[in-house]
């Protein structure tokens, strides 16, 4: 496996791989997103308690799932970047964090909009929404730290350490917030957490979870390609990818 993986530590090789994968991911993301949302919005039956407002879960739940998933992915990349000193992995932190933050923002906004007709307030201190908000803060911290250094390598390493510290803290934060919520409010309506969901509603939900995974992956790939080009912009391969041919005269000067 190492022999297979090793070439991709080089940015050039992994850039080519990502470029080959990107159209497939982008197309399948758009197609699954359209199918699942049209299915969820128009064809799934209305909920007998919540009416049609429950249809927001077709974006809220996948966005919430992948906001967590992206954080775990970012932490894995951070571990790889710190342990094996692979630069592509450290750029992946900067590529994943904004996408994860966007997913978190979507989950928060849709949660608030769903809460208005259901709870009567835009913001209820519900356990899941609160931990989602804290997750957003964690993303913001990682991003701010990444770009706070003059030396980009130091920034990437610092952000990697913070991402790992954050991922250790994430379950603790999650359970403490959940416990805090039961302490202060008793059992609120367990949001979206019904044990049995009708199959007619479940299938579009599963499809939309898949669709958001593909959307997240597509955005991450796009951003990671940019990060690679940005960090390798002095290399001939990156200049060639950007449509600039390294001039012959200069290369002769350099070889001298």
């Amino acid at each position: 496996m190492w022999r297979w993986l090793h070439p991709y530590a080089k940015a050039e090789a992994s850039y080519r791989l990502l470029s080959r994968l990107l159209p497939w991911f982008a197309c399948s993301a758009v197609v699954t997103l359209l199918i699942s949302l049209v299915w969820g919005l128009a064809f799934a039956p209305a909920d007998y308690q919540q009416g049609d407002s429950y249809r927001i879960i077709y974006i809220h739940v996948p966005a919430a799932i992948w906001s967590m998933g992206a954080y775990f992915g970012m932490a894995i990349m951070a571990l790889i970047a710190l342990v094996w000193q692979i630069r592509t992995a450290s750029w992946a932190i900067a590529a994943i964090a904004p996408v994860g933050a966007a997913m978190t923002a979507i989950a928060l906004l849709t949660g608030a909009i769903w809460g208005k007709p259901m709870w009567g307030t835009w913001w209820e201190w519900d356990a899941r929404l609160t931990s989602e908000l804290i997750l957003f803060f964690l993303y913001v911290g990682v991003l701010a730290l990444y770009f706070a250094f003059d030396d980009q390598k130091a920034g990437a390493k610092a952000a990697a350490i913070l991402a790992i510290v954050g991922v250790i803290n994430l379950p603790i934060i999650h359970f403490s917030v959940e416990w805090w919520n039961t302490l202060h409010q008793g059992a609120t309506i367990t949001k979206f957490g019904r044990p049995s969901i009708a199959n007619d509603m479940l299938w579009p939900l599963l499809l939309s979870i898949l669709a958001f995974a593909l959307v997240t992956a597509t955005l991450i790939i796009m951003r990671l390609r940019n990060e690679m080009l940005f960090n390798e912009i002095h290399r001939p391969w990156a200049q060639a990818e950007l449509g600039v041919n390294p001039p012959v005269a200069v290369s002769q000067q350099e070889t001298r």
């Binding site: 949302l37 919005l41 209305a46 009416g51 049609d52 407002s53 249809r55 927001i56 974006i59 809220h60 966005a63 904004p98 996408v99 966007a102 923002a105 979507i106 906004l109 849709t110 909009i113 769903w114 208005k116 007709p117 959307v215 955005l219 796009m222 951003r223 940019n226």
Partner: peptide, 25 residues
């Protein structure tokens, strides 16, 4: 079913965020 404003604004905002991120990239 009376929730049109909520459902459609949720979808619109989500797509706005995704579109902004894509455009920025």
């Amino acid at each position: 079913g009376g929730y049109g404003l909520y459902v459609w604004s949720a979808f619109a905002l989500s797509f706005l965020i995704l579109a902004l991120l894509t455009c920025y990239t």
